[in-house]
Design a protein around this nucleic acid. Structure first.
Lengths: 151, 151
DNA sequence: CCGAGTGCGTTCTATGAACGAACGTAGTCA
DNA sequence: TGACTACGTTCGTTCATAGAACGCACTCGG
């Protein structure tokens, strides 16, 4: 069966899930954030099936996350660049990085987040912009304002 | 073919992806964060296949995200509660909520994040804990310190 | 004591999706 | 001319998902 789509749900978490909570997509985004913009670079870095990468990139294009940009006339060559919307996913990937770093490792991970200029380590933290307090599942919660399931 | 596993990757994003970037898992977590702790409640709220919910909850138990807690002797009844590690996923879900809210909606979403006590709206923001600056894909980036692909 | 209801899964079948390898294509370079 | 590069597409096998039906232990009302 085809999987259930969440892209029309009335919940931001559901729509974001529909977009990036599938196999490979977050890692494709990681590669793009790491500066790899070409198809073959990503295939090589991730050891991903070309068919799957094609499908994922097309999905990201359809959603307005990346766009195809021609960087060579002859031969015709394209690279994939983030749109503004795509760059807005960086905080989400960052939060995933932080969780993984804090809870999924004993040893030190080999993928780090660093300041682009100084090279200093960066530690993502999710706060409430109103109060400045770190997000805490005891202090904040999901409220469903419509009775709709999923949505 | 079975899908490629990322749980032994040396990248925090990859390990977190392995954990929650699959179909349904983020929505199951959303329901748990919204206060639904029982199997039947989640089935009803999400309209999810029982088989899939069973598989997802068992995975979350194996990973130490939730634990099964008996709340009734006769009849034997269980509910699913977050561990400390599970509550640490709240910032990740929050960041997903914020992205969805900012970029995936024209109208207002029906799922909101509120302060548990005051009921005031909460706006998650991902910052660098060192500098206090919002995470920005121009100012920070992924650095791969080992040559390993994926990992 | 019987039959319906509840809560929580398991089993079953079909249909998709993912994987990996091979193939195609358009151009470059020696 | 033949090898190589960068990007995909096609194909067959295997796995996951959806949805419905079934199972089971217990409770409750009559």
């Amino acid at each position: 069966m085809r999987r259930t789509r969440f892209d029309d749900a009335y919940c931001p978490i559901a729509r974001t899930t529909d977009l990036l909570a599938d196999w490979w997509t977050p890692l494709v985004l990681r590669e793009l954030f790491a500066g790899r913009r070409r198809f073959e670079q990503i295939v090589e870095a991730l050891d991903i099936s070309r068919a799957v990468l094609t499908q994922r990139l097309n999905r990201l294009i359809d959603e307005g996350i990346v766009e195809k940009h021609q960087y060579s006339e002859r031969p015709v060559r394209w690279e994939y660049r983030f749109t503004e919307k795509g760059r807005a996913l960086w905080p989400v990937l960052s939060a995933m990085w932080r969780f993984g770093e804090d809870w999924m490792f004993g040893e030190a991970p080999s993928v780090e987040l660093v300041d682009a200029e100084t090279g200093a380590a960066v530690r993502p933290l999710v706060i409430d912009a109103e109060t400045g307090r770190p997000m805490d599942s005891f202090r904040s919660r999901v409220r469903l304002s419509r009775p709709t399931p999923v949505d």
